[in-house]
Amino acid sequence: MKKFARTPRPEWSNWDAIEEAEELLPGIWSVSTASHGGLILSGERQEAMPEALRIEGASYEEDVNWSHVVLAFESEFREHSKLPGAQIALARDCVRCWHPDAFTTFTGEKVTEEGSYTLKRRRAYQSCIGELCVTAAWGSWADWVPEGKTGVVGSVIRSVDHLGHATYESACQYALVDAKAYEARTDPVSFASLNAELIECPPGMAR
């Protein structure tokens, strides 16, 4: 196992001024700020990150990307860090769920839709490519939406990236749909599935 050098406490972070910092392993700092936090890697650690798990900038935020670092150096974390075993196991689950392609490339393990929210989302949005789908909605509190209705705006899905994020055509369309039907939706939701009643762009709204 390669030996990594210890590094000074980071002086900055992508998230805010650093309030607390702990070196979990040489060259791997866990930092927290008033707003967010995550793991910051030394140049040596970042260079050693497997390509499939490496994120540009060497800052791995605390919601999801931290798990890339723990998975990359899993054996070292188990042997030499104070990180609980449950958190190390969570890292594997986190990468598998949210970044399944990176997980498979690094581990060689196939990920199914049952084990990955991202794969489910990607398939769902891919099935709607070319369809007019809802991107935002307003309740009857809006002056252009009648009681019992939900006002929606949407665009045609043009493409879907590897994380299941859709790219939409620039043109948008407004419509009214049944409020209960909208409440029962599962995303993505097409205008056709809601029997949307197309309307002109309401006054003051973006075209």
Rank of each mutant, 00 (worst) to 15 (best):
P84Q: 08
W29Q: 02
E79I: 11
E61K: 01
E47N: 05
A52P: 12
P84T: 12
E56D: 13
S42V: 11
V69T: 06
L83E: 10
G37H: 03
L53H: 03
E76I: 10
R78W: 14
E44P: 11
E47G: 02
M49L: 08
I88R: 00
A34H: 12
V70P: 11
R92W: 09
W66S: 02
G27L: 06
F77V: 06
S30V: 10
L90Q: 12
R45F: 10
K82T: 15
L53D: 02
S42F: 10
P50V: 04
V64P: 07
G37A: 02
A72C: 06
H80W: 14
A48F: 10
S75K: 12
S30G: 06
S75V: 14
M49C: 03
D93I: 08
E56H: 10
S42M: 09
A34I: 12
E76N: 06
R92C: 07
E47I: 04
F73Y: 11
S59W: 14
S32P: 09
T33L: 06
M49E: 05
V70Y: 04
V31S: 01
R78A: 03
E51L: 07
L71E: 05
F77D: 00
P26A: 01
G85M: 10
N65K: 07
E62I: 13
L41D: 04
L71Y: 06
W66E: 01
F77C: 01
A89V: 14
W29D: 02
L90V: 09
S67Q: 05
F73G: 00
L39K: 01
E76S: 06
S67G: 10
T33S: 08
L39D: 02
W29C: 00
A91Y: 08
L39S: 00
L24D: 08
V64F: 11
A72R: 01
C94G: 02
P26V: 11
P50C: 01
D63V: 14
G43D: 13
K82M: 14
S35W: 14
E76C: 04
R92S: 07
W29N: 00
E76T: 13
E47H: 08
H68V: 08
W66L: 01
N65D: 15
L71V: 15
R54T: 08
I55K: 06
A72E: 04
L53I: 10
I55M: 04
E74S: 04
N65V: 07
G27W: 11
S81I: 15
G27A: 03
